[in-house]
């Protein structure tokens, strides 16, 4: 009798051992097909829309770092042709003005970067230029954070520290209305 009952139990139990394999198969399928999309990019705060154009003539020329990009993707930095490789270092020098030169920004808070492009400029070039300018500021913030707080500049920093750094070296980039010489037809 006892033997029979044990046999009964054996036949009633469904073997669930292969269930794990099936689930594994599905899991691996999802693991392989999932591309964890990394949504990264350059975050920009656009200026609010206003009808009147900002008058740049009131600013002292020494405080303005003008960058022009034409439809042939060539750069004109402070009225001289320039290379994109030098852009970051030139911008950094302009903002900080370590040797107190006459033609560079009076102080970082007064420095303004003015970016102007053509409607025919390639987006890739535009973003590259923007990236370099942002990199200049990021490096300056990093240096400031290193010397003041001994840490590198990151989003994890306390808010007051970040505010202090950004107050000392504010990111001011004004984008002028683009010219339309090389507009694609």
């Amino acid at each position: 009798m006892a033997k029979k009952s044990s046999k009964d139990r054996l036949t009633n139990e469904i073997n669930a051992g292969s269930m794990a394999d099936i689930a594994f198969l599905l899991l691996i399928f999802f693991l392989v097909t999932t591309t964890i999309v990394q949504d990264k990019g350059i975050t920009v705060k656009l200026p609010p829309w206003s009808e009147e154009e900002v008058d740049a003539t009131k600013l002292k020329t020494r405080n303005v770092f003008s960058v022009l990009v034409n439809a042939q993707n060539q750069l004109l930095v402070r009225d001289e042709p320039a290379n994109i490789e030098q852009l970051k270092d030139r911008a950094k020098e302009f903002i900080m003005n370590p040797r107190g030169q006459e033609d560079l920004a009076e102080k970082p808070t007064k420095a303004i970067i003015s970016l102007k492009n053509d409607r025919g400029t390639n987006y890739e070039t535009y973003l590259e230029v923007y990236n370099e300018l942002k990199a200049a500021y990021n490096e300056l913030w990093d240096e400031e954070a290193q010397s003041k707080y001994g840490t590198e500049y990151s989003d994890k920093m306390p808010r007051e520290q970040k505010k202090a750094i950004k107050g000392k070296i504010p990111f001011v980039l004004s984008e002028a209305e683009p010219t339309s010489f090389g507009e694609e037809k």
């Binding site: 949504d39 990264k40 990019g41 350059i42 975050t43 920009v44 705060k45 656009l46 200026p47 609010p48 829309w49 439809a71 492009n117 053509d118 409607r119 025919g120 400029t121 390639n122 987006y123 535009y126 973003l127 923007y130 990236n131 683009p178 339309s180 090389g182 507009e183 694609e184």
Partner: peptide
């Protein structure tokens, strides 16, 4: 080319959507 991007940026500014991320 920047023409269309510029038009869209202007439109975003007009609709007060100022936080923009250039995907890269």
């Amino acid at each position: 080319t920047m023409g269309i991007v510029q038009d869209i940026k202007t439109q975003l500014r007009k609709s007060n959507q100022l936080k923009v991320n250039y995907s890269a």
